Amino acid sequence: MSTLLPPLRPIPIRERISVIFIEYGEIDVLDGAFVVIDAGGVRTHIPVGGVACIMLEPGTRVSHRAAALAARVGTLLVWVGEAGVRLYASGQPGGARSDRLLYQAKLALDEGLRLKVVRKMYALRFGEEPPAHRSVDQLRGIEGARVRRTYQLLARQYKVEWKGRDYDAEDWDSADIANRCLSAATACLYGVTEAAVLAAGYAPAVGFIHTGKPLSFVYDIADVYKFETVVPIAFKVAGAHTGGNFERAVRLGCRDVFRQTKLLDRIIPDIEDILAAGEISPPSPAADAVGPALPHPQGTGDAGHRS
């Protein structure tokens, strides 16, 4: 007599491993487990439900069952280029919440509310209140000057030759070591941040500082943590580079700093805090709207995860 297994329940983002990379293997579900099978037939089990984001590098193939399982447990699959420095596509780990999407859109479309949100982002990023009576464009200019100065200071600290942030998206290998390290590091941060944004029930494309990109809001949120986490790692690896796989060293450093700074514990509460700066409540459903015929059971994961 067979026994039915209980339904899968997503684990909250804060309780997960941040990110892992997979290359040169076939990903499938065998005996109920998410596994990677290499060219020699060796299986490696991946605890898919305990990972926020899985980066799939060139040489990987994903079965339909594996993609479906990742979606059910709320794990974001991201298809990236070699060394993880290009983000090609991602598989949404859950269903975004319409109430939160409308709340986010209302904040982004009203210039006064948008400015309040941007000011909160600035305060969290730099640890101080931004100058009063400044527009979003003026705050962006102040931010840009501080960012350039921070790059220069880190380059000096780690003895890295620095000519500025410069890379060609069509030819990554043409960039210098420091820029390639930065690209690898920020790709890690963007993957983890996108997983958190989706898990919280918001839209990656609806940004406040960035706009016009599929990940505009992801860039907004990632910038809050970038110079606290991954940018110093990139310069440290670039300064110590003596050959070998520096992209791997960057990824390992990012994984460690995500754990040390408890990043996954912080992203979703910080998103809520940032949006709350607009001082409005999420909109209520229309009075004549039709609710679900079969209410969803209460899930154990984050708000954006499917039950």
Rank of each mutant, 00 (worst) to 15 (best):
L77Q: 05
L87S: 00
G49L: 01
R97H: 02
V29S: 08
L77K: 03
R72D: 14
M55V: 05
G91S: 13
P58G: 10
G94T: 03
I37K: 15
L102C: 10
F34I: 04
D99S: 12
A71S: 14
V36H: 10
D28S: 13
S90M: 05
A33S: 14
A105F: 11
W79G: 12
D38K: 09
V73Q: 02
K106P: 00
A83E: 10
V62S: 08
S90T: 11
V35G: 11
A105R: 13
W79R: 12
G74Y: 02
K106F: 02
Y88F: 15
G94Y: 01
G50T: 02
V73R: 03
R97W: 02
V80N: 00
A66P: 11
L69P: 01
D31T: 03
R86M: 08
V51G: 03
A96T: 09
A52V: 02
R72F: 00
P47F: 10
A105D: 05
A70Q: 05
T75I: 02
R86W: 01
G32L: 07
E57V: 08
G94L: 04
A83C: 08
I46T: 12
V85Q: 14
D38V: 11
G40W: 03
A71Q: 09
I37A: 04
H45S: 13
A105P: 01
G49W: 00
E82N: 06
C53Q: 10
I37V: 15
G74W: 00
Q104W: 09
L87I: 05
R97A: 09
L56F: 10
L77H: 02
W79N: 07
A89C: 04
L101P: 00
A52W: 00
L69R: 09
V36P: 08
M55Y: 10
A71C: 10
R72L: 12
I46Y: 07
Q92K: 09
R72G: 01
Y103I: 07
S90N: 10
G95L: 13
I46K: 07
V36C: 15
I46F: 04
H45R: 15
R100T: 09
D99P: 02
S98L: 15
A83D: 15
E82C: 01
G41R: 04
R61W: 05
P47C: 08
G91L: 14
G40A: 07
S90R: 12
R97K: 06
A68E: 13
L30R: 14
G50A: 12
G59V: 10
E57K: 12
T75F: 00
A66C: 08
S98M: 14
V42P: 00
G32V: 08
G94H: 07
L101F: 04
I54C: 04
R86H: 11
L30G: 00
V35K: 14
G41C: 03
G84S: 06
V80D: 01
H45N: 12
T44C: 04
H45Y: 13
L69T: 01
R43F: 10
T44F: 07
D28Q: 09
A39L: 11
H64S: 15
S63M: 05
S98Y: 09
D38M: 11
D28A: 12
V62E: 06
E82T: 11
C53V: 12
D28Y: 03
E57R: 11
A66V: 04
E57A: 15
V73K: 01
D38Y: 08
R97P: 00
D28C: 03
L87R: 06
